[in-house]
Design a protein around this nucleic acid. Structure first.
Lengths: 344, 344
DNA sequence: TTTAGCACTCGCATTCAAGGAGTGCTAACA
DNA sequence: TGTTAGCACTCCTTGAATGCGAGTGCTAAA
């Protein structure tokens, strides 16, 4: 069990190291105004803390730096809740204050703001539109061979797709198709659209349209939506200013991996409600063993639909970042939910 | 005037330096199979070339590297046209072979392919939709307070915008507005929409709709489009693998500037038809004095609507990159134009 | 005009010593 | 028993000295 003083010293070392990126020595702690112990005393406790695995030494005669276990303990037990500065609050408020939320726009902006406020790299996933409901389908012919298909969901999301127009379909056919689709698919959640298509729409098309096969093929194309989650980045460049990434090799591997959507999804996956904090090896990826990734889900009508996250060095300003990301994810959820809560 | 041999040596040095990133010495050139001169002879020519400003020495006893003037001469006079490899051609072909071009999607993909093929960073601007014509306007209410406005252009571009719905407008009002807009604005180029609105639509709204002011405000919001050019990036990480960017300071300033849209626009602005190549200081930006930027406009129906570009070190594989970017910009223009050439 | 030869330059890696920050340990102190 | 002063020790950092090697410039000969 750790004594009060050991906890204090652990905290002092972590705070100091986060601030300076330099190993912290006993003397510097002893000199603090609020400390009345001699360096020797502090050294003893530091030795104990090291023995217990909370601290490390880069080499035998240097000051101490926190180990991952040290950070973990700091995050779990020592963290003082951080008051956001008014500038930070203002910044986020302005994001949600817009009158006309374009969902994707807000989500994208979140990434930018997040990286600006934290000075680390931000990643935002989503929003997942899988469960939102189809509101309307439009097919607009551009010329004899091409048309644009537009899907609108109840969350205001617009998905559009250029499709090739078979010769066999004329204007009245298109109108029929559009009517059938709107009739049968309105208010159907996107994940059910495929099924509904096969069950009900196919038969109707067969009955009403001569070149049934073309129509069917065309309709399927029309409804094919990009179901993959979108990934937005902000401030990757910030990482280059962190002293732990002075080594270009590390930056390379990290940047390369951050371009792979799968990896990013994996890294950000939240483990539970609220914040997920993965420190160093907890990320399960050698390239990120010097990184901490903090993520939080945001939701729409109580269902999680995406994730916001921050990537930075393990020597991260935990209190501040945690405050910001917590505030932002909640604000995002509220904004989305409030705006469309009356949506049918 | 340069002798044949001097030209040959200049070319050999540039080729060698592009390949190895190391200063090239007289001995290594002399040892080439196709060279029958002694190192001393070559040294004499090298000294002349240096005097004329085509070469530089990092320090007094090293091999030579090309100066900017050297690169410029190489690009203008020595460059052998490069045959694209079949892999490169295949790669680009597959990009344009898609049946259903989603313009923005293709443009975005171009950035990715460009960076993959060249191993440098790619930037793609546009496509500018300023001159394309409005095809259809749709207003789809989501709930009592919100609606989605959708604009479709003759190029298949879809612009959508969430707008707040004034209480005073009911469903039939929306329908009227939509009809008026489609009636008056169909086939109007986007850059004229604003003017047309003021001249014709305002009066009509006034005549037909009770709460005219709300309607007017609502309509203006609806048509407000994001006129800014989009910027797509590809493979910025590639730059980290170039030896000239081993110094993290340089990378930082470059990456920071590449996040500023204005700067990027400035850097990529093509000077004339065909390729624009800016070497080092020609970029007029200290941060890019070690960079070469090659850009080319792509067009739609003969009008330039965007730019594709590559950012790399001045020590760039000019022949290959020039071949690729030339092919790609032309391919992109063709693809866009062919697809919609029948568009009204 | 070209080439061989040679002295010279400069960067780079290695070595070594001095300096300093910080530790661990021991013994004394409260 | 917990705390502190003192001191030897470790190891990193810095800077100067050194040798090596790649490459040059110049001169004189072919």
């Amino acid at each position: 069990m750790l004594t009060e003083r050991q906890l204090f010293i652990l905290q002092a070392i972590i705070d100091g190291y986060i601030q300076s990126a330099e190993p912290v020595g006993s003397r510097s702690i002893s000199k603090r105004q609020d400390v009345n112990y001699s360096p020797a005393t502090i050294r003893n406790d530091m030795a104990d803390l090291e023995e217990m695995g909370y601290l490390e030494k880069p080499h035998s005669s240097s000051g101490r730096i926190p180990s991952e276990k040290g950070y973990r303990h700091y995050v779990d037990h020592l963290l003082l809740p951080h008051r956001l500065s008014s500038k930070e609050i203002e910044n986020m408020k302005s994001l949600f204050a817009k009158d006309f939320l374009q969902v994707e726009e807000v989500v994208k902006q979140s990434a930018t703001i997040l990286s600006e406020l934290t000075s680390y790299a931000s990643i935002v996933l989503g929003p997942e539109i899988f469960e939102s409901k189809l509101k309307q389908v439009q097919i607009i012919p551009l010329n004899n061979q091409t048309a644009v298909a537009i899907l609108v969901t109840n969350t205001g999301h617009v998905e559009n797709q250029t499709v090739s127009l078979p010769d066999t379909l004329d204007g009245s056919d298109l109108e029929k198709i559009t009517n059938i689709l709107n009739d049968k698919l309105k208010n159907v959640p996107l994940y059910q659209v495929q099924k509904k298509m096969e069950e009900e729409v196919g038969a109707l098309l067969k009955r009403h349209i001569k070149s049934y096969k073309d129509a069917m093929f065309f309709t399927e194309e029309t409804l094919q939506k990009s179901s993959q989650e979108k990934v937005f980045y902000g401030g990757k460049t910030n990482l280059l200013f962190q002293p732990e990434f002075r080594d270009i090799e590390k930056v390379r591997t990290i940047f390369t991996l951050l371009e792979e959507d799968d990896t990013v999804q994996e890294l950000l996956k939240p483990e539970h409600d609220g914040l997920t904090i993965r420190i160093g090896q907890e990320n399960d990826n050698v390239a990120f063993e010097n990184c901490t990734i903090i993520s939080a889900a945001y939701s729409f009508n109580g269902r999680p639909v995406g994730t916001v996250g921050i990537v930075g060095p393990t020597r991260m300003e935990y209190p501040r970042v945690i405050g910001i990301i917590d505030h932002l994810s909640k604000g995002l959820s509220n904004a989305l939910t409030n705006l469309y809560k009356k949506g049918s």
